[in-house]
Amino acid sequence: MRHNHLLKKEFEHLGLDLAAVFHFTPLDLDLENRRLESLLDFVKRYQQYGSRESMEAVEGKFIYPPIYPGIDPWSDWYRFERWMRGESVREAIVNLFPIHKEFLSEEELDDDQIESETQRLIETIESTGNGVCLAEDIPARLIYRNLMEWINEPHELSGPYGGGWIYDGCSGYCPGCFQRPWCETGSSSCWPDDEEEGKIYYIDELKPYVSASPQLLAIISKLQAEEDASFEEWKNENETKKEAGPFLDHEGLRDHSNEDELPF
């Protein structure tokens, strides 16, 4: 515990906000200490060399900072160097918009405006290096409302050559999703929420657009049962293959290199 405290104090003395780039594991202090030591060592080497270019030139290899979350080498370096300068490593996407790009709240837009403003919002998001990928045919007002929430949430910054964030609106929890009626997975899977409701469960946000019925619950229950059966069949087949033995090594592959099909 004392060693952990001393390591964290080192970052305080350096004026670095550890929480911005570090994943704490209080239930495993040995792991946390190893990560702290690794990051502290990297920071001191970077300070010694003065730049990424010098650091890689002297050490003779490509290196990247052990920060969290690791996104891609370019973005990780970009965030690390901003962090070392005391700058933010997370930013709301709306703050990356050009100054002249302003958007009204969804409540201020009438039905004639919402379509064009939604498209303009998507194009502006894409101009920042980020993107939007949603199910088709979702009403524009729903898209606009949820995008406005998303762009105001902080996200890890990506470097000039790194990839941006893609908003797909999916948390993996279908009953709580605004896309559910238009999503193939969401509209064909049955959750405990649906069974408790006695019909497919939709959040209040969807009620102006769709309505659920007990008949629909029967349909998705059947689809879910078919999906579960298919998964069990796949699992059993793969368990059988697993028990048959490990994949061939390189020598084994070479023996079959002239055959049309490999034996697995």
Rank of each mutant, 00 (worst) to 15 (best):
172 G>I: 06
81 E>K: 05
9 K>F: 14
64 Y>G: 07
173 Y>N: 12
161 Y>K: 14
3 H>R: 15
150 W>A: 12
49 Y>V: 02
225 A>L: 12
86 G>A: 05
231 F>K: 10
263 P>Y: 06
158 S>D: 10
74 W>D: 08
100 H>Q: 05
219 I>H: 08
100 H>D: 09
178 F>A: 01
18 L>G: 06
95 N>Q: 05
197 E>K: 14
144 Y>L: 00
47 Q>Y: 03
140 A>M: 09
191 W>N: 01
15 G>D: 13
13 H>M: 15
164 G>S: 12
60 G>D: 02
192 P>V: 01
150 W>C: 05
18 L>H: 04
210 V>P: 03
12 E>H: 12
121 L>F: 02
20 A>C: 12
254 R>F: 15
39 L>P: 05
184 E>P: 07
144 Y>Q: 01
46 Y>G: 05
199 K>C: 14
73 P>D: 07
111 D>N: 05
159 G>A: 08
16 L>R: 14
107 E>C: 04
37 E>P: 03
12 E>S: 14
228 D>Q: 11
240 T>A: 15
65 P>L: 07
214 P>T: 04
226 E>K: 13
4 N>Y: 13
52 R>M: 11
97 F>H: 05
180 R>Q: 02
129 G>M: 06
205 E>S: 13
155 H>D: 12
248 L>A: 14
213 S>I: 02
194 D>H: 01
14 L>V: 09
198 G>T: 01
203 I>L: 08
19 A>V: 08
37 E>D: 05
78 Y>C: 05
173 Y>G: 04
238 N>H: 14
260 D>K: 14
231 F>D: 08
181 P>D: 02
116 S>Y: 01
173 Y>I: 03
193 D>P: 00
88 S>D: 10
3 H>G: 13
245 G>A: 14
64 Y>K: 06
191 W>D: 01
51 S>V: 03
15 G>C: 11
